[in-house]
Amino acid sequence: MALTFSAQTSKLSLKLIESYGINPAEILKKLQIDPKRLNDPNARLPYSTLDDIWAEAATHIQDPAFGLKAVECWHPSQMGALGYAWLSSENLKNALGRFQRYSRVVTEGAYFEIEETPKYLSLILHYRSVARQLPYRTDGFMAIMLAMCRANFGKHFQPAEIHLKHSAPEDTSAFEELFKCPVFFGAKDNRFVIHMKDALEMSEGAQPQLAKLHDQVMIEYLAKMDRKNIVEQVKSEIIKQLPNGNVTDTTVGQALHINDRTLQRRLKEQNTTFKTLMNEVREDLAATYIKDSNLSLSEISFLLGFGNISSFSRAYKRWTGKPPSHLRGSD
């Protein structure tokens, strides 16, 4: 089954890209990502899509350490309940524990391990096999953790050590300037290390009861995700396959490693069908594409997997009551 991530978390990546003067809408368009889904707190995308966003950003940004700029882009809303549970945690040790337990709310493409010694507390990042382990993404994760710790502990917070599996860039000054602690490249694992005394210090924003409420939200979300993830996975795969023009339950099932009968049964359990999801995806994408004056009706028809403009026009009229030419004129 394809691993996913919360669509809202990609806002951080896009904000980072925009900080370099690059229009993130162009990247979304190229990768065929519907921007409306990024505002849906329940939407999830294939984990590979997040790697695609970062890889595409790397082709436009010349700074090899651009991932570190994520420290300026993090906001708790990008992580939903996990972000706010983090802020209301009693201390950093509790916050890191929550992050480890509920990280699947944000991403399934990685998992985390906590290691304790009398002096230090480490959060270790492990990528799953689906991840490309892009160095600048790992740099971005470490920068995000720094931003999160500072949100709880104060701007003066600095980690004890940073360990990165990737090799050192030619210029490491950006790492030294940001983390202000030893940074070890070519390490055996990726780990964010803090002093235990800092981990146990009470956070100014500590609200244990509120944190527990967020915990309950995440527990319920994960349970719901396990039941309904199939719908988002099918929708994401339909979007990916639409320009090929021959999307079927068989082709989508093959991509998700599910046979036809199992796919139909699991969708039925969610009170939907493949045909319904295909129609919903096309309708949602059409509403976005039709507003893009750079796309002709022929191009929109192709992107939505229709064989010709006539088929697209009939579908669009069925969805909206009016033909697309009513808004666009004849292309």
Rank of each mutant, 00 (worst) to 15 (best):
V130M: 12
G83S: 07
L45K: 00
A187N: 07
D292P: 05
M196T: 05
I22F: 06
G67V: 10
H163W: 12
A255M: 09
P46D: 05
N39R: 11
L31R: 05
Q158Y: 05
A287N: 10
Y47Q: 06
G97R: 03
V247Q: 04
E204R: 14
Q264S: 12
P76M: 06
G80V: 00
L16W: 01
G67Y: 02
N190F: 05
G245R: 12
G140I: 01
A70K: 03
G97K: 05
R98Q: 04
A287C: 09
P118L: 11
F306D: 07
Y47F: 13
K11E: 06
L297S: 02
K322R: 15
V252P: 01
N91I: 11
P182D: 06
S311Q: 15
I33N: 01
F112M: 08
N229A: 07
T276C: 08
D226L: 11
Q78F: 15
S48Q: 15
A43I: 09
P169F: 12
N279M: 08
A168E: 10
L121A: 06
A206V: 08
T172N: 12
Q32M: 13
M225N: 13
Q78V: 01
S311G: 15
E269M: 11
D34Q: 09
S293I: 07
Q133W: 02
V217E: 13
S77R: 14
E204F: 11
L178W: 05
A211G: 10
L213A: 10
F153K: 15
L210C: 10
E116W: 04
I162G: 03
E177P: 04
V234Y: 00
E237N: 06
A7E: 03
Y316C: 02
L14Y: 00
I53T: 00
S301F: 01
N42A: 09
F66A: 04
L134R: 06
N244P: 02
I61L: 01
P323V: 14
K188P: 02
I124S: 02
N308Q: 14
Q270N: 15
V105M: 11
S129G: 06
R314C: 09
L297E: 02
I22H: 07
D331G: 07
Q133D: 12
F179A: 01
L87C: 10
N91T: 13
R227S: 13
K212P: 01
I61S: 00
Y102L: 10
C181G: 08
A151D: 12
N229W: 02
L200F: 08
I258R: 01
S10C: 05
W86Q: 02
F185P: 00
